[in-house]
Structure formats: C-alpha cells, structure tokens
Write a protein that binds this DNA or RNA. Structure first.
Length: 270
DNA sequence: CTAATCACCTGAAGGC
DNA sequence: TGCCTTCAGGTGATTA
C-alpha cells in the first residue's frame, strides 16, 4: 500500500499527535506482526523521536526503536480514547494519556520491529529519495554500470528507498521513459528528467496527503487526495493526458505496469 | 549481476 | 447466491 509519500504523511501526523506520549502497554493480537529483534522486550517509555527512512516509520521509545513497515495493507492509526474496532487489528499500543496507536493489517504482511539497533534494518537501504543528498549527480552515479531495466531498478529499495509501484509508474511517465528501458540505454537528458520527476512526483503526492486507491489512511484516519492527480497509474485504456492515446497496462517485473506507449517509447535494444 | 517465481495473507471484484 | 479466478500499493528467498 503505502510508499514514501504516504509514510511521510503518517509520520508528520504522528509527530503532531503522539510525540512525548508515554507507552504503558503493547498488546499483540497477531504474533508475527511484532518482531522482537534479539528478543527485545517491550519498553514502556516516552516516544522521543519520530522519523521516516524510505518506507520505514521509526519511533524512538526510550533507548530502543520501534520500526514499522506497513507493506501492502498496514495502517497506523492514532486513537484518542474510547472503544475501537478490532477487525484486522494486529497490535495496539496504549499511552498514559488514554490515547492509543493502532496497527491494522488485513493481509498480515506488515511488521513492527522492536530493536536497539535501527541501523540493522536501515543500512541495507539505498539513499532516501527525498534526502537532499539525493542529487542528480548521485542518481547518475547509482545508475552507472547497471544494466537492469529502469522500473525494476527504481523499485529496488537497496538502490533508492521510497518508490513503489504507483510512483515508479508516475515518475517514468513524467519523464517520458518506457519502464522496460535498459539503464545503459538512458540518455543523460532522460536521467536528468527522471531525477526531476522523482522529486516532483513525491513532493506533489505529499502535498496531496498521499494516494488513497482503496484503503490507505493517514494516522488520523483521513484519505489522501493524490489519486485524483495520477497521470497513468490506474488509468488503463483511458486517454493519455499528453497525446490522447490509450494508456496501456502490462505485466512487467511481476507488477501491473501503466504507461503510454506513445509518450514512453521503448528505445534501444532490449 | 539480472530475471523469474514463489511465499507470505486476506478481501474485493468479476465471470459464470 | 455461490463458487472460482485474478488481482492488489511490498519485499525477501530461492532458483536459473
């Protein structure tokens, strides 16, 4: 479900609602949803820091970290008190103030990790796509010497952290690059266009509070608005906004991939 | 190094 | 109504 923009919106709301809250209890309703790294026991302390890296939400609780990855269907919802739905509820954290933090996850792919060493989870990841240090020059450096297809490269969090299926398709459309293009066939100009597309697309999606196609909700339970601004994703057979030809959807990298065959021609030998 | 497939899970939607 | 298939915003392991 959530990619970098959705996670960023959730993190911003968490900062407004649960910063400095003291955890008094953690209840696990589906055991696999909370991984106690090195058998770390839950710590009942204050949330001292809330940040994001790629698609990870990082809560610092006392001296340990609670990392959250929502995967496909996870939701992290702040509840102000009183009764709440238990449907698909996997973990919930209660605070001294009476508020609680609810982790819902129908498909059970999402994970919360309790660990003293956040780096163990974060260091395998590439640079965060919205890190100011992720520059056009850095992007070109990452691509140098690679020969995979650009879509699978962008989806691989070990290269660049944050993009998922929706925003990868959106970025490639914005840059006019076919998802199957070999990295070695990208021109300098295309690399520059793609770099700008990544920054702009992600920033725009954050401004719209993320993309709610089905079940994404912010930490306050609100829907995003960016679905109304998508250019190709979920627009199969609809006219391309640029050339009016129908948007195509094909199975690429084991993911549904949306693109305009006219505005994103496949160049070079593949 | 690259690519394809499977596994992890549940629910919604569409075909018949 | 109900059964069956397909698909979904993610990622790690395994296999060629």
């Amino acid at each position: 479900m959530p990619e970098l923009p959705e996670v960023e919106v959730i993190v911003r709301e968490l900062r407004q609602t649960v910063m400095n809250e003291e955890i008094t209890d953690i209840k696990v309703l589906w055991k696999k949803s909370l991984v106690r790294h090195h058998d770390h026991q839950p710590v009942f302390a204050e949330i001292k820091d809330i940040r994001r890296y790629g698609k990870f939400i990082i809560l610092q609780v006392g001296h340990v970290f609670l990392l959250v990855h929502l995967r496909m269907s996870g939701k992290l919802i702040v509840h102000q008190g009183g009764p709440f739905s238990r449907k698909h509820l996997r973990v919930y954290i209660t605070f001294r103030s009476g508020k609680s933090l609810l982790f819902y996850d129908p498909r059970k792919f999402g994970r919360m990790y309790l660990t003293a060493d956040a780096q163990q989870f974060l260091s395998p990841l590439g640079m965060d796509a919205l890190d100011p240090g992720f520059s056009g020059r850095e992007f070109a450096r990452l691509l140098a010497g690679k020969n995979s297809r650009i879509k699978s490269f962008l989806l691989d969090q070990h290269h660049l952290a944050g993009l998922g299926n929706i925003y990868t398709d959106e970025c490639l459309y914005r840059a006019g690059v076919h998802p199957q293009t070999r990295i070695s066939n990208l021109s300098e100009r295309e690399v520059a266009l793609l770099f700008r597309a990544i920054k702009k697309t992600l920033q725009g999606a954050i401004e719209h509070m993320g993309t709610t196609l089905a079940d994404y909700r912010t930490a306050e339970g609100k829907k995003g608005r960016h679905q109304r601004f998508l250019k190709v994703y979920d627009r199969e057979q609809k006219p391309c906004f640029r050339c009016k030809n129908p948007v195509e959807k094909k199975w690429i990298n084991g993911r549904g991939t949306h693109f305009c065959p006219v505005c994103q021609p496949l160049k070079g030998k593949s």
